[in-house]
Nucleic acid binder design. Structure first.
Lengths: 132, 132
DNA sequence: ATCGTTGCAAATGTTTTGCATGTCA
DNA sequence: TGACATGCAAAACATTTGCAACGAT
């Protein structure tokens, strides 16, 4: 557990949305933590590997991060207008993936499943478009 | 409707998966179409704006594209060593996605599911390790 | 002394933009 | 001619890596 990882977690603990590495870095500097951008990138990498942090790719292509609600395997339902995210457990999907993978002779399989749509708030708030 | 747009659509018409801009460009060259990479980028941009093409961001951060409506919806099981790909139909997963999406009030949902592993050939061809 | 962490600078890879040229009505 | 499409080269952008210096055990 490195200093940079602790600092990144401290920032993510305060924020409930997704933050990009650069935003995390700016907030760290604002707090007075002197951590390099490189270390922020390295920290989020290992936090993601440790399943402590979730990644989400914005439509602009940058990776954004937030603290996981749970450390077990789960998937995301993401609103493509406002970015609101719901964590979803999918035991049935996990079982299906495991069996179909084995049926085809594959080993060491991993999977990613992401669902994007428009959430109820954005559906009713009509005319709202992505601005950024 | 520009020449580049027509060329990109022609490539996407043949492929049912998602292709990156660079893959589209390579396929165009292979076909004999002389189109610059820049024009491919500009073409997919306007095709996306026109809602003729769907975008998907890979976990690696690159944008991939496919023709809209060509939703012969299936998923891929990809060997991360040799690249061999098996197409998989997953009606159960589709149903689950639909219901969980609706339960959370989301509309216009799309999903991507990717499974990667090591296929039987690569497992038996011993000594092969992930190099990248 | 050793080993892991740090951060600068430089490299990488994707995508965008400036600009001069080509093309077609 | 005029407006637009093209493509090269260079820029912009997020991210990764090389490497030398640092700190703790």
């Amino acid at each position: 557990v490195t200093r940079a990882e602790r600092a990144v977690l401290a920032v993510l603990a305060d924020e409930r949305g997704f933050l990009s590495a650069q935003q995390i870095h700016s907030l760290l500097l604002a707090r007075g933590d002197r951590v390099g951008l490189t270390s922020v990138y390295r920290a989020v990498q290992s936090l993601v590997a440790a399943r402590v942090v979730d990644v989400h790719r914005t439509s602009g292509g940058e990776a954004t991060y937030r603290r996981c609600g749970s450390e077990s395997h789960h998937h995301h339902l993401v609103c493509r207008l406002c970015g609101r995210t719901v964590e979803i457990a999918a035991p049935g999907v996990e079982r299906w993936v495991t069996s179909v993978t084995r049926d085809h002779g594959f080993r060491s399989a991993t999977h990613t499943l992401e669902i994007t749509g428009v959430c109820d708030r954005c559906t009713s708030a009509d005319g709202n478009e992505i601005s950024a």
